[in-house]
Amino acid sequence: MGTVGTSADDIADERRQLINVAYRLLGSVTEAEDAVQDAYARWYGLSRSRREEILSPGAWLTTVTSRICLDLLGSARARRERYVGAWLPEPLPDHTEWNHAGGADPTGPADPADQIVLDESVAMAFLVVLESMTPAERVAFVLHDVFRYPFAEIADVLDRSPTACKQLAASARRRVSVVRAPMTATGRADVVRHVKEAWEAKDIAALVGLLDPAAVMTADGGGMVGTVLRPIEGGAHIAQYMVAIADKAPGLELLERSVNGVPGLVAQRAGVVMTVASFDVSNGRVTRIWAVRNPEKLRPWAREGSRSGRAMPRGGQRSGPF
C-alpha cells in the first residue's frame, strides 16, 4: 500500500490517497480528516530510527488509517443508535465547480472534500449500501474492490488471514450487487431537472409521474433542524409532502448541483445552504431521495453561497427545505 519514500514531501503526498480511503470507509469528511490526522500524528510520534526502518511510509500510513477507521466503524453503530432520525453519509460538492467559480482559494490549505475523487464509489446510493456492511466487510471490500489492495496487505489491517479477508469482500460484494447500474449523467440530470421544475410549480401530478411508485425519501437532520424522522415511502406520499412543505420556507432557492459526482439539488436561503439532496434514478424515475439537512454535514458546502449568482430559479418561485 503506497510508495517507497521517507521525505516530508513523500509523506505529505500520501494525504490525498488517505483521505479518499477514509471517506469511503467512514462516509464522513470530518471523521476521515480526523482519522488521517491521527495516522500522521502516530507516524511523527515514531522515533526517527523507527521511521527509517519502514520501507513504505505510504503502506504504513494506509494500514494505520484503515485500522483507525475500523475502530471508528465499530463504535459508530452505538453512536448512530442514539442519533436523532436517519443517519446519512456527508454529501460532497464537485470541487471542479469551486475552482471554475473562483470559490476556492488555490493558495490556501486544501479542503479535505476537494481531495476526494468523485466516482461511482462515492455515489450516495453506493455509500448507503456500504453502511449496511459489517466494519470488517466494509474495510475488506473498499480496500480491495475500490483501491485494489491485495488481500495479503488487507489481512494486516484486519488481523485476519488473506482467505478470511477474501470471504469478507465476497460477502460485501453480494450486497453491492443489488445496486442498479446508474443512468447516464445526461439522463439523470434531465430527471432531476424535471423534479426541480415540478416542485417549483407545486405540480403534484408531475411529481408523481417522476417518482417511482415505491420510491423512498430519507432525510437527515441530526436533531439539529426540523425534518421527517422516518423515511417517507411511496411516490404519491413523497410528492404530497414536497408540495406541502413548499410554502413553509419562503425565500429558498432550489439549485441544480453535482452531489457526490452525480446530479442533485441544493436548497439555500440568503446564500446559506440548508439542504443537499441526492437521487437514485432508474428507468427514468426517481427511486430514492436522500436529503441531508444536518448543518454539521454541510460544511463542505459553505462556499455555495458565494456562487448564488449561478442559481437557476424559474418564475421566481421558491421551494421548501426538504
Rank of each mutant, 00 (worst) to 15 (best):
E97F: 15
H100G: 13
L158Y: 00
R173P: 04
V157W: 03
C165N: 02
L118G: 01
A170W: 06
A123L: 09
A113M: 03
A155D: 04
R175I: 07
A123M: 08
P150T: 12
C165H: 02
D159F: 07
A164L: 08
A155W: 03
I116Y: 01
V157H: 03
E131M: 15
D114W: 08
A155L: 05
T96V: 14
E97K: 12
H144N: 15
A110C: 08
H95W: 15
K166L: 12
V122C: 05
V128M: 07
L130N: 02
P135K: 13
A152L: 10
A140I: 02
L143M: 13
A172V: 05
S161R: 11
D145I: 11
P106G: 07
R173C: 08
V157S: 00
F151K: 01
A164I: 08
A170V: 10
I116V: 08
Q167V: 13
M124Q: 06
L130D: 02
E137Q: 15
I154Q: 01
V139F: 00
V139H: 03
A164G: 06
A101K: 09
P109S: 11
A155T: 05
P106N: 09
A170R: 11
R160F: 07
D111T: 11
E153N: 10
S161W: 07
K166I: 05
S171M: 11
L143Y: 02
C165E: 01
A136V: 05
G103R: 07
T163W: 10
R160T: 13
A101I: 08
A169E: 02
V139D: 00
L168E: 05
H100N: 13
V139L: 05
H95S: 15
A125D: 06
Q115V: 04
V122E: 03
